[in-house]
C-alpha cells in the first residue's frame, strides 16, 4: 500500500470512528478493505484510495469505517462486570430508584448483541425484584450490519459456548438447525440504535448504568477524553460507568473516578462522597 494511501485511509478512520491505526497495521487495512473495494467494483487498494480522495460517496465511507471496526464479543464476557451488575449495581439502583421504579442501561458498543442480551438475562433472573419496574436497555454501535446481527439474535454453537452457562442456554434460547436463537422475551428487552460515539448523541437520554467496554482501547488519549466527557453528560449524578479490563479513566479525564473496591466501575466525580462506599 502506498504510504500516502495509508495516511489518507487511517486519517479517514480516525475522523469517522476514532480508531487509531499505526503504520504496522497497513496489512489489516488492506485485508479488511479489499472486500469493500470489490463490493464497490473498485479493482485495487490504490483505486479505492483514489476514489476516497476524489469523489467519495457516503455509502463507501460508511462501508470503509464499518469494515475496520472490531466486533469481538461473547456472552458474559469477562464475567466479573456481570457479577458486579447483579450483586452491586442492581441492589444499589433498586434502592435509589425505588420511588420511580425506572432504570435505563446503555451498551455503548453492543456489537452482535451478546452484551445487552447478557444484561437482559441477568435482569430476567431478577424478575421478582423488578416487578413493576420500567427498564430500558439500549444497545448502540457504529456498524449497521453488526446491529442487524444483534437484532436477529441468532448465534452459532461456538458463540453460545463462550461464557453462556448451559442453564441459561436452555432457558432463553431455541435451537434452529445448528444455530441458537435468543428468545423473544429477552430480545424485546433491548432496543438498538446506530450511534457514533464521536458524534452528538441526540435524544439518547440519561442512563443509570453505562457499559462502554473494550471500546476506548482503540482510541487515542484526546478521543478517549472526548468520548468519556460525552458519556458523563448522559448520566445522572449517581450513575455508574463500566469499562473494559484494560481501560481506565485515570490520566484520561477527571469527569469520573474509580468506585472504591469495585474494579472496572466508575462514578461521576461530582457524585456525593458517600456513593463511593458500596
Amino acid at each position: 500500500m502506498r504510504p500516502a494511501d495509508f495516511e489518507l485511509l487511517s486519517n479517514l478512520l480516525k475522523l469517522n470512528s476514532g480508531l487509531v491505526l499505526t503504520p504496522d497495521k497497513a496489512y489489516l487495512l488492506e485485508s479488511r478493505l479489499m472486500p469493500v473495494a470489490r463490493k464497490h467494483q473498485i479493482p485495487t487498494m490504490e483505486a479505492l484510495a483514489d476514489k476516497v480522495r476524489s469523489r467519495p460517496d457516503d455509502t463507501l465511507l460508511r462501508d470503509i469505517t464499518e469494515a475496520m471496526t472490531t466486533n469481538e464479543s461473547s456472552f458474559f464476557r469477562d464475567s466479573k462486570p456481570f457479577d458486579q451488575l447483579r450483586d452491586v449495581l442492581l441492589p444499589r439502583m433498586l434502592e435509589a430508584r425505588g420511588a420511580r421504579k425506572q432504570l435505563r442501561i446503555w451498551c455503548a458498543a453492543a456489537s452482535s448483541g451478546q452484551e445487552p442480551y447478557s444484561i437482559s438475562m441477568i435482569l430476567k433472573e431478577q424478575a421478582a425484584k423488578l416487578a413493576g419496574w420500567k427498564i430500558d436497555i439500549i444497545g448502540t454501535d457504529l456498524s449497521n450490519p453488526i446491529l442487524d446481527r444483534a437484532k436477529e439474535g441468532l448465534y452459532t454453537q461456538f458463540e453460545v459456548q463462550r461464557g453462556l452457562p448451559i442453564t441459561l442456554l436452555v432457558k432463553y434460547f431455541k435451537q434452529e438447525g445448528d444455530k441458537w436463537r435468543i428468545s423473544d422475551d429477552i430480545k424485546k428487552m433491548v432496543q438498538y440504535r446506530r450511534l457514533n460515539l464521536l458524534q452528538p448523541f441526540g435524544d439518547l437520554g440519561q442512563f443509570d448504568i453505562v457499559f462502554c467496554r473494550n471500546v476506548l482501547i482503540y482510541f487515542d488519549q484526546p478521543t478517549k477524553a472526548k468520548v468519556l466527557e460525552a458519556i458523563s453528560k448522559q448520566m445522572p449524578n449517581d450513575g455508574v460507568l463500566l469499562l473494559g479490563g484494560a481501560e481506565t479513566v485515570l490520566g484520561v479525564t477527571d469527569r469520573f473516578r474509580p468506585m472504591e473496591g469495585q474494579r472496572g466501575l466508575y462514578e461521576l466525580s461530582t457524585a456525593p462522597a458517600l456513593q463511593k462506599a458500596v
Binding site: Q157, F158, Q161, R162, G163, I166, T167, V170
Partner: peptide, 25 residues
C-alpha cells in the same frame, strides 16, 4: 442437554470444542 442436566450434569460442551470453550465452561 435437558436430559443431562436432569441427570445431574453441571455443564455441557457441544463438540467440537477447543481450549477456550473448556476453560470457559
Amino acid at each position: 442437554i435437558v436430559e443431562a442436566l436432569g441427570a445431574g450434569a453441571d455443564e455441557y460442551i457441544m463438540k467440537p470444542f477447543d481450549h477456550d470453550i473448556v476453560q470457559a465452561k
